[in-house]
Structure formats: C-alpha cells, structure tokens
C-alpha cells in the first residue's frame, strides 16, 4: 500500500517537473503561430486562435533569416569538421605514439583547461583585426578549430586501442598517417560522433565570440541576429518567438536524432574527467 502511494507521488513529481520544463518551449512554439498582438492580450492566451505562418514568412521574406541560418550552419559545419581532424590527430598522438616530451606537453595543455576563453578574447580580437580577419568566417571559426577538451576526450578514448593492432600495421609497412586513416579512425568513430554533436551544438549556440568578431549583419549567426532583432522588434512577441523556434529547431532535431551518443558522451566525460 505505502509502496503504491510512493510510486504515484514519484510519478506526479516527474510529470509536474516535465510540464514545468517544457512550458517555455511549448509556449514559444504556440506564440510563434499567433496573429500579431495576440500573445500580448489579456487574459494571456495559451493557444493561437487561428494559427498563422505570417511571422515565419516575414522572417524569411523581410528579415533575411535564411542568410543567418546559412551562416550558422556553415560555421558549425566548418568548426566541427576541422576540429575533429585536428583534435583527432593530436589526441591519438598523445595516446599512442611515443615521443620525447609527450607527458610534459600534455600536462601543460591540461593545466591550461582552467583558463577561461574570455581572458584571451580582447587580444585575439586585436590580433585578428591586424590579420584582416574581423567580420569574416575565418575570424568566427578560428578559436573553435582546436580544443583542449576535444584533444583530451579523444586521447582518453584512444588509450583503449591495443598497441598490437598498430604494431601489426607497422610490420606490414604502413606509414603512420595511413595507420591513422585506416586503423585508428574507424575505432575512434563513437567518440568522434559524440564530439561532433558537442561541437556542432556548441558552435551553433555560441554567442559572445561571434558578437565580438562580427560587425556586418550579412555575416551574423542566428544568435547574434536574434539578439539584434529583439532590439528593434521587442514589441513583436510573435515574430521573436518564430525567430527563436527557427534558431532552436535545427539543434533540437540534431540532438533528438543523435541523443544516444550525445548523452553517453556527457556521462562518460564526467566519470573519466
């Protein structure tokens, strides 16, 4: 009897928690389909009276949203691809190749994990300004192209690759780069998928650095464009909600499709870290 009651209570708590968690997102979706002004009516409405797509149309037709979508997708894809290659090579080298100074270099990188990115952002801006990279795609993606955390994750995973496998390939006369491509990469696939989702989401959602380095709205990413838009259209609740939906939707879909590897990655990273 007591057990049954506890079980009901547990599920009530979970359902209430789930409703509270989802309400902001559901309201965002609902309000994005409301007619102009409907979200600011009294008493507040939960569902659109007659759903309309006008705000989505306006975002694409008048406010150039497709350009920001493209910029965000391009930056996130470039950062993900490049950082996986660069971190993958480095992480594998730290895990499996023998060379003088390996532990010292690795320890230095680990120590540098405590330095927050903001500390270097101001000089990095000046540096890129003199290189002519302010307001360019390269300027946005450069700080993300290599990450110490990514190198660390790949190294931890690559430690599990048996040395015999690599030595056998060496016996067959394969060069190190070929071993990496044909033997190591397939074995690293699970961690690479996890890191790819991490990196893509992180780059898509990033705000401070794109805000600093981009000055021309033709290059804005979605979050920067959205923050800019809310300054001019703060009264257009429904329009802003449609913009928020479009910003969140791509990453939410990506997460739902790849959630197994993402969630495993978060849990694994914590246990080892």
């Amino acid at each position: 009897m007591r057990r049954g009651f506890g079980r009901i209570l547990l599920h009530v708590a979970l359902v209430v928690g789930a409703i509270l968690t989802l309400t902001p997102l559901l309201w965002m979706i609902s309000a994005s389909f409301m007619a102009t002004g409907e979200a600011n009516s009294l008493p507040p409405r939960l569902l659109p009276h007659s759903p309309t797509l006008e705000h989505y149309v306006a975002l694409f037709a008048r406010l150039d949203l497709s350009r920001y979508l493209f910029n965000s997708a391009l930056n996130a894809t470039l950062v993900t691809t490049l950082s996986l290659c660069i971190n993958g090579l480095a992480g594998y080298a730290f895990a499996k190749l023998r060379f003088g100074g390996r532990d010292r270099v690795f320890r230095t990188l680990m120590a540098a994990l405590v330095i927050p990115a903001q500390v270097g952002m101001l000089p990095l801006f000046l540096f890129l300004k003199y290189l002519g990279l302010v307001n360019t795609t390269w300027g946005v993606i450069i700080p993300g192209m290599c990450s110490i955390f990514g190198i660390f994750m790949i190294r931890q995973y690559a430690l599990g690759i048996p040395d015999e496998l690599l030595d056998a390939a060496r016996m067959d006369g394969a060069g190190e780069l070929r071993i990496f491509r044909t033997v190591v990469l397939p074995l690293l696939k699970p961690i690479l998928v996890t890191l790819a989702v991490f990196t893509f989401l992180g780059t898509w959602n990033d705000f401070l650095w794109p805000l600093i380095i981009l000055s021309d709205d033709a290059r804005y990413t979605l979050p920067v464009a959205l923050a800019n838009l809310v300054g001019e259209h703060v009264g257009d609740t429904e329009l802003m909600m449609a913009g928020s939906v479009l910003t969140i939707l791509p990453v939410m879909v990506l997460f739902l499709v790849l959630q197994r590897s993402y969630i495993q990655g978060v849990m694994a990273g914590s246990v080892k870290g």
């Binding site: 997102l25 965002m28 959602n205 959205l226 923050a227 913009g243 928020s244 969140i248 990453v251």
Partner: peptide
C-alpha cells in the same frame, strides 16, 4: 541543447 540567446528572449 537550446540556444541561450533564443530561450533568454522567450523568458
């Protein structure tokens, strides 16, 4: 996984 800027606007 949501974008902070977007949900900050929602809130």
């Amino acid at each position: 996984v949501t974008t902070l800027v977007a949900v900050a606007i929602v809130w």
